[in-house]
Amino acid sequence: MNGPRLDELDRRIIEKLGRDARVSNRQIAAELKVTEGTIRSRIKRLQAEHLIQFTVVTDFRVAGSPNLVMMGIQADPSRVGALAKQLADIPEINCVIVLLGRYSLLAMGLFTSIEQLNALIFGRIRVLEGVRDVETSISVHNVKYEVGVARITAKE
């Protein structure tokens, strides 16, 4: 597991960017009383270490108000690692977690049609070698979602 790699300055930079991701390096530098170059190199390091990234998120409504679907997958233990990669390669699936306990794998995706969901599960997930069962449930209401925290996975 990752140890603490952040010092006080890193944390204060992250806090400023969390409030406004578009704030300029110059402004952060002025507020934290360090040079602009320091801010630039700190942000670069945080990005290189996959501790922060900057992206655009669009609202559910722009994407046709999809529903979050969670798929709990029971699988042959010897196939879980390979299945995780196969599931991650499916563009419609946003999130793949290797789980201990409830399921072998937890996959999540956003869907606007039940036909599209059904085609994915029957056509592309249940047919994968080692998949024993897929338990599907659909979110009918999102109560909380923290946009600013996630797992930043390395792009290959």
Binding site: T55, V56, V57, T58, D59, F60, V62, A63, P66, A84, K85, L87, A88, I93, N94, C95, V96, I97, V98, L99, L100, G101, R102, Y103, L106, L110, N142, Y145, V147, A150, R151, I152, T153
Partner: peptide, 19 residues
């Protein structure tokens, strides 16, 4: 309660969120 512990997060890419 049915808890499961994440052993590995292989993918986590949500570009569409409730704003």
């Amino acid at each position: 309660l049915s808890p499961g512990i994440a052993a590995d997060i292989v993918k986590f890419e949500f570009n569409v969120v409730p704003l």
